[in-house]
Amino acid sequence: MQLAYIARRFAVFLLIVWLAATLNFFLPKLSGQDPVRAKLLQSAQLGGYVHAGLEDMVKEYDKRFGLDKPLWQQYLTYLRDTSRLDFNYSIANYPRTVREMVAEAVPWTVGLLGITTLLSFAIGTLLGALLAWPGAPRWMRWLMPPLWALHAIPFFLLGLILTYLLAFQIPLLPIFGGYTAGAIPSLSIGFVWDVVSHALLPALSIVLVATGGWALGMRGMMVTTMGEDYVTFAEAKGLSSSTIFLRYCLRNAILPQTTALALALGQILSGAVLVEVIFGYPGIGALLFQAIRENDYFLIQGIVFTVIVALGLATLILDVMYPWLDPRISYRRA
């Protein structure tokens, strides 16, 4: 049964990948725009030089990128290339390939997002559980309103405010880039601290907002769980309150949180993209921003495809892990 579930879930993943690729291919075609021509025209105008030879250049580039073939053939070629993670050359940064540029940016985003998501999920879940727990210290009640308010703010807006407070007013932290310009990447303590300190502000703006969301969700689940009969029974048995809190309430209330995590990944990433733009953090978001500015179609498509696939993979892993977290769920179809 387990295998059938995983196979079905994997089929959904493949469907997502195929849809993303197809969307990526056809949407720009629908608009009837010609990215190569547009880019060449733009450069030509920048150079104060137009017309002569432009048509020939467009033709040559079209041949180079395979844009002169019939549409279905282009589509098949596109699918084949995409399945090999070959996203063609960057239009604006020729001869660099899109794959190369994306590969450079991915570790930054994965690092920033992985750490902040885990942190905010862990802190938020624990905090939310304590907020609903009658035995928690009283001062914790005061945390609720600020958590609610923070939760409603977009990541990047908090980023702006934090920049002003912690980088401009009190110049504590650096605010631009992934490390000090000119620093040589190495494994020395100095460089590691440099990277960490550059990541602190973007990370803080994500963690502060996201923690509130997880805490609110967890608190709601805890309230429901604490009303369950088995909790009353555990109390009647005289189990210690920490056992009831950890093994009875928290353990059960955390399950919907994990489902929510799988669903929220996409939103978190959308928010993080903007945080990177605000802080000029050298990840996927900043690269995307650059690609949009430079009208670099292939780069935009490559980034969007990579991200959708990566997120699809992350949700796949979470979904497959879920029955392991919750033994009540068998892999069988409901």
Partner: peptide, 21 residues
């Protein structure tokens, strides 16, 4: 269900870029 797992902003970017001008 599938649509919700995809990061919305990125799909919107592809759409917005496609209908640009």
């Amino acid at each position: 269900d599938i649509g919700l797992t995809v990061p919305g902003l990125l799909v919107l970017i592809i759409i917005a870029v496609s209908v640009r001008g």
